[in-house]
C-alpha cells in the first residue's frame, strides 16, 4: 500500500472560492483528532472499549488547536496537503438489516447532498460470497489516484484535487458521458432529466465540492465531502453509520476515525487485511475495504436482502422527473 500517494492530476485552474460552513462543535472535534495525530498520540484499534474511553477523553479535553488552521484552504498551517481516504469495515456492515431501514449511509448522503433520485452516491451492493450467502459492500466513488474518468474527460470538468479527491465541475461538464463509460465501478450518475431535488437545494451556492443544486445533463458522483471535513465534520455517510463501519482519514497524517475512535490508517488497513476493489485494474482507489460480511455485528451471511433506498423529498421536487438506473 502506498502511504504517500501522489495525486494524479492537478485541477485545471484555481476554482472559485469555496465557502466553508463553520460549524464550531463538529469542526473542533475533528481538528482535535487531527491535532492528536500530529503529536503522535494515535492509539491503535487494540480494544474497542479502550478506544471508546480514549476518544471521550479527547473530546472532553482542552482546546489545543490553533484556530488559524481553519483558513479554508486545502492546506493546513504546516503546508500539509491532506490525502483523504475511506476505510470501510465490511465485518461491521449488515446493510442496516439490524436497523430495519435502508442503509443509513446512503440515506444520510442523499439528505446531505440532495442527491437526485435515483443516485446512490454511496450504494450498498449485496455481493455473493464464494461459499454461499452474501456480504454488503457500501460503495462510494473509489477516488482513484489513477482515475480512468479524469483521463477521458474532454473538457477537464472532472479532475483530481491535490487532496486526492476526484471532483466534477457541473458548470463545465458537457454531458458526453465518456467518464461513465470509463468508470469501472459504476459510480457515476447522469442527470437524464431535470433532477428531482427538493426546492431548498436550489438555494445552495454551487461548488464542485457540494454539487448542489444538481443540473440537468451533467454527471454527478460521491465527492468525498472534503469541504465538510475541512469544516470540521465527518462525511454524512460516516456520521450516519449505526455500526461505525466507515472510517474516514488522511494518509498525510496517517490517521482515520469512524467518529468514535481514532486509529492509524495504514495499520488499520494492514492488520485487518484491507484491500481495494478491482485492484488489478491499476486505478489505485483511495477507498479500502476490510473483509467481512457483517459478522462483527452479528449478521449471518445467509441473511440476504436489504431495504430499498427512498428519497424523502420526492413529492416536493417540483417539475422533476425520476428515472431508474
Amino acid at each position: 500500500m502506498s502511504k504517500r500517494p501522489e495525486t494524479a492530476e492537478s485541477p485545471p485552474e484555481p476554482r472559485r472560492e469555496v465557502p466553508i460552513p463553520l460549524n464550531g462543535v463538529d469542526r473542533r472535534t475533528v481538528l482535535k483528532y487531527i491535532g492528536l495525530g500530529a503529536i503522535g498520540a494515535v492509539p491503535l484499534v487494540a480494544s474497542t472499549q479502550l478506544m471508546d474511553g480514549l476518544v471521550s477523553d479527547v473530546v472532553a479535553g482542552p482546546e489545543s488547536v490553533d484556530e488559524t488552521a481553519q483558513s479554508g484552504s486545502a492546506k493546513t498551517q504546516s503546508t500539509r496537503v491532506r490525502q483523504w481516504t475511506m476505510i470501510i469495515d465490511l465485518a461491521r456492515c449488515d446493510g442496516c438489516q439490524s436497523q430495519g431501514t435502508a442503509p443509513q449511509c446512503t440515506l444520510a448522503c442523499i439528505e446531505g447532498h440532495f442527491a437526485p433520485q435515483p443516485m446512490e452516491w454511496i450504494e450498498v451492493y449485496e455481493a455473493e460470497l464464494a461459499g454461499g450467502g452474501t456480504q454488503f459492500i457500501p460503495t462510494p466513488c473509489q477516488q482513484c489516484e489513477n482515475p480512468p474518468c479524469v483521463k477521458v474527460c474532454p473538457v477537464g470538468a472532472t479532475f483530481s484535487t491535490p487532496e486526492g479527491v476526484v471532483l466534477i465541475d457541473q458548470d463545465r461538464c458537457i454531458g458526453c458521458r465518456i467518464c461513465m463509460a470509463a468508470c469501472p465501478y459504476d459510480r457515476r450518475f447522469f442527470n437524464w432529466g431535470t433532477p428531482p431535488i427538493p426546492p431548498e437545494a436550489l438555494l445552495a451556492d454551487y461548488n464542485p465540492e457540494q454539487q448542489t443544486p444538481a443540473t440537468r445533463g451533467t454527471v454527478m458522483k460521491c465527492d468525498f465531502c472534503p469541504e465538510t471535513v475541512r469544516g470540521g465534520t465527518l462525511p454524512f455517510c460516516v456520521q450516519a453509520c449505526p455500526q461505525d463501519a466507515i472510517w474516514y482519514g488522511d494518509f498525510e497524517e496517517d490517521i482515520a476515525t469512524n467518529g468514535r475512535q481514532i486509529v492509524k490508517a495504514t495499520e488499520l488497513i494492514s492488520e485487518r487485511n484491507g484491500y481495494r476493489l478491482k485492484e488489478h485494474l491499476g486505478t489505485q482507489p483511495r477507498v479500502y475495504y476490510l473483509p467481512g460480511h457483517g459478522e462483527d455485528v452479528g449478521r449471518d451471511p445467509e441473511d440476504e436482502g436489504r431495504m430499498p433506498t427512498e428519497w424523502p423529498w420526492i413529492e416536493r421536487a417540483e417539475g422533476a422527473v425520476t428515472w431508474t438506473r
Binding site: 485545471p12 483521463k151 474532454p154 473538457v155 470538468a157 461538464c173 458537457i174 454531458g175 445533463g217 454527471v219
Partner: peptide, 18 residues
Amino acid sequence: MGRPERIFNVFRYGRWQS
C-alpha cells in the same frame, strides 16, 4: 450530448489527453 449548448467548452477547455 447532455449539454449541447456547452459545445464550445471543447475548444475553451479542451484537453488533448481525452
